[in-house]
Design a protein around this nucleic acid. Structure first.
Length: 429
RNA sequence: GCAGAGAUGGCGGAGUGGUCGAACGCGCACGACUCGAAAUCGUGUUACGUAGGAAUACGUACGGGGGUUCGAAUCCCUCUCUCUGCGCCA
């Protein structure tokens, strides 16, 4: 969500930005917004002066009553009523305009960073840095479910019976490995100075509609029957919701938080939900990082954040690369975004294991997340960023494929061993 | 879950239909006094929107939403949260 004042002053920059994102159908929105904004301000001016009149009437009626001038007071009441009718009309009209304006404003994409590659869709995303050498295995790498089953680490049949497609039982050493990865990731982020946080796993509808559009909500969120509660799709929802409408003291910025939560997603219409396995599922767990900072700090934090994820994967000896999101693939709120992708020796390509985004002030403006600028004394919108630290079980796929040995066992890299009771491999049962 | 009480500015806390953006106190900022400080005295101190170069003016906001009224912090409805007691429970 852009600042209406910015659009008013820089309509061409806004149009140029829309073109860069190949959203030509949204170009008319700029003029629509300018028009609505003009109308809105006109209405406000008339409304304000009418309301000023209402206040004057009310005051004079008050003093007339006290002086006992009954008839004059009644006459003033009549006059006031007529004025109030007009106020009501204006209020109705303004609130209608407000709704349309807000919707249009939310559809206009955030200004993207200068260094975002221009491209139509995800096919034009650009490879960034590459870490560790991506190599094929000297033997055939089976599908991850087969690896898991051979290690006695998964029970999909039972999960289908109890919960349906898109759920899983992880068992034994694999379940332990899953927890070990999360615990390691948690400690990894704490060591980077982040504050560990366990948020609510359910949030109210007003928070949901604050953090996402109706379409996203419909496609992702599970609603609790009979309650005004939804299961979170990511801890970002409750982590960012925590700061809705809040003004944060400048001295406590940047807020660097790492949160754990299970994530629940309907994945309505999503590609791959029918696929057997744990790549796309209705429930998974995730360690996330959230940064809320001053505007001048967000570029720096963005760089740091995706590199932390890379560092974590590299420490677990999993080859990864950065994939820079091109303009057309960038969600509307994002200024800049990249995925961290892990190497799949089975498929001979990289696949997404995390996503890092700088939303600048777009999300903060929408949700009213501000900080008090001590220098100017003004409240200003903060910048928000989020990134995946690690999300098993998806990450498990990369882990298993990369650490599978010729004998069918799976190698455990050193940093994880202390969370696995000291073992250095998971052997075939 | 039941019963009762409550939610007001950065904090404490008045205010039960008009003169209330809100007494008073604390805090904070500036000034005076002082070599300097404390104490004291004085002045100022909410946010957001609109107009304006600015000073400023007007509007909105007393947990959220809705209603009654010419006029609502104050009355009514509703939701949320907090406290106390009872009940239940990892």
């Amino acid at each position: 969500m852009l600042d209406i004042n910015f659009i008013r002053e820089n309509p061409d920059a806004v149009r140029e930005n829309i073109k860069k994102k190949f959203q030509f159908h949204k170009l008319p929105l700029v003029d629509e917004v300018l028009e609505l904004d003009k109308k809105r301000r006109e209405l406000q001016q008339e409304g304000d002066s009418r309301r000023a009149d209402r206040n004057k009437f009310a005051k004079s009626i008050g003093s007339l009553m006290r002086e006992g001038k009954k008839e004059e007071a009644e006459a003033a009441k009549e006059a006031s009523k007529a004025n109030n009718d007009r106020v009501a009309e204006i209020e109705k009209e303004s609130s209608e305009i407000e709704v349309v304006l807000k919707k249009a404003l939310c559809s206009i994409p955030n200004i993207i960073a200068d260094d975002v590659p221009i491209g139509k869709d995800d096919g034009e995303n650009v490879q960034g840095e590459v870490f560790l050498k991506a190599e094929p295995k000297p033997f055939e790498v089976p599908y991850h479910v087969d690896i898991l089953e051979r290690l006695n680490g998964i029970d999909l049949d039972s999960a289908r019976r109890t919960s349906g497609n898109g759920f899983y039982y992880l068992t034994g050493d694999i379940a332990r490995l899953h927890s070990a990865i999360l615990t390691y990731a948690r400690d990894f982020m704490i060591d980077k100075g982040f504050t560990y946080c366990i948020p609510p796993f359910m949030i109210r509808s007003d928070v949901v509609s604050g953090v996402m559009s109706f379409e996203e909500m419909d496609g992702m969120m599970y609603k609790i029957e009979g309650e005004d509660l939804y299961l979170i799709g990511t801890s970002e929802h409750s982590m960012i919701g925590r700061f809705m409408g809040q003004t944060i003291p400048e001295s406590s910025l940047p807020l660097t938080l790492t949160s754990y939560s299970p994530c629940f997603r309907k994945e309505k219409g999503a590609h791959g939900i029918e696929e057997r396995g744990i790549y796309r599922i209705h429930q998974f767990e995730k360690q996330e990082m959230i940064v809320i900072c001053k505007p001048e700090q967000s570029d720096e934090w963005y760089e740091k954040m995706w590199r932390y994820t890379v560092e974590l994967f590299v420490s677990l000896e999993i080859p990864v690369r950065q994939l820079i999101c091109c303009s057309g693939d960038l969600a509307d709120l994002k200024y800049k975004s990249c995925d961290v992708e892990a190497w799949s020796p089975r498929q001979g390509k990289y696949f997404e294991v995390g996503s890092c985004s700088n939303l600048t002030d777009a999300q903060a403006r929408r949700l009213g997340i501000k900080y008090k600028n001590e220098k100017t004394g003004k409240n200003e919108y903060a910048h928000t960023l989020n990134n995946t630290v690690v999300a098993p079980p998806r990450m498990l796929i990369a882990f298993l494929e990369n650490h599978l040995q010729a004998d069918g066992s799976v190698y455990i890299p050193e940093p994880l061993r202390k969370y696995m009771g000291g073992i250095d491999k998971i052997a075939v049962k």
